[in-house]
């Protein structure tokens, strides 16, 4: 039976070493692909490199805090806010790259057509690829926890900051994953998808680099309203720094969730139209 299976599925079945029904359907197929993507990101040597880079960035930031006198005097809540923003930005970058590679990279490596020939609904393919991104984001969250504890446990609102990171960060991170995936499916090239996706990411994440003064102008306020990154950062600011209850941040969450749904719709549309050849 294995010899007749499309390559990706049979490879997954062999690698997972467990019984995967053939032909895989719906959720089973999605889980199969998610487990393959996740294992490639976490167990593969090249895949582990991104985890190391994430650690190094977080370590550099943490060391900067203890080595710089001015930064070392920052309030704990401010430090937690900065680190939460950094982790969300890194997560969005990670899922964008993984998303762009999910379809565009398969095409570049010549493995997209065998994947499309697998008896899998396109929705299962999409869910599986997004599942892989969720595994990667979860790993990044786990890596970030000790850093957040190290810089923020002597102050207040650390738990609220972690809750914000999970509840508010996940929609925005997955949104960029969906965007990367959709662009990869649209252009059938990881490089093109990544170029466009990075431009969008930099534009969206610009509030993380702008001071509060610039964001108080009319354009800044308008951008804050529609930009999911701004909405999330404002919500994290309100919860972690101003000690407002996390449950009051429904509007920013709704903005981020709406953007996630939009990106998901776009990804589903482009993946469902995949033929394996440039359109």
């Amino acid at each position: 039976m294995d010899e007749k299976m499309p390559g990706a599925i049979s490879m997954v079945r062999r690698r997972c070493g467990r019984s995967v029904p053939y032909p895989p359907r719906g959720l089973t197929g999605a889980l199969t692909i998610a487990s393959k993507e996740g294992s490639e990101l976490l167990m593969n040597q090249r895949g582990l490199l991104w985890l190391l880079v994430t650690c190094l960035v977080l370590s550099a930031f943490a060391l900067l805090l203890v080595s710089d006198t001015e930064l070392g005097l920052l309030d704990n809540a401010q430090v937690v806010y900065d680190m939460v923003g950094l982790v969300i930005s890194l997560g969005a970058l990670l899922t964008l790259v993984v998303g762009a590679d999910a379809i565009g990279g398969e095409q570049d490596r010549g493995s997209l057509v065998p994947l499309l020939l697998a008896p899998l609904p396109r929705s299962a393919l999409l869910l599986g690829k997004l599942g892989g991104q969720l595994v990667a984001w979860t790993a990044m969250l786990i890596i970030a926890l000790p850093y957040l504890w190290a810089v923020g446990s002597t102050g207040q609102n650390l738990a609220a900051g972690i809750a914000c990171l999970i509840l508010l960060g996940t929609p925005i991170v997955l949104m960029f994953g969906c965007l990367g995936l959709a662009l990869g499916a649209k252009f059938l090239s990881a490089r093109s998808a990544l170029t466009v996706g990075l431009v969008v990411l930099i534009l969206a994440a610009s509030p993380a680099m702008l001071g509060p003064g610039l964001r108080q102008t009319a354009i800044g306020v308008a951008v804050d309203w529609v930009n999911p990154f701004s909405a999330i950062l404002n919500a994290v600011d309100a919860v972690v720094i101003d000690s407002e209850p996390a449950l009051t941040q429904t509007t920013p969450f709704a903005v981020a969730f709406a953007w996630l749904l939009l990106a998901l719709w776009y990804a589903r549309r482009t993946v469902s139209r995949l033929t394996g050849s440039p359109q």
Partner: peptide, 20 residues
């Protein structure tokens, strides 16, 4: 008050990358 404690940050900042 130096709020970020070196004793907490250094083991994490060096230990986690070393482990990975």
């Amino acid at each position: 008050k130096p709020v970020v404690e070196t004793g907490r940050v250094l083991p994490i900042a060096s230990g986690v990358p070393l482990a990975i």
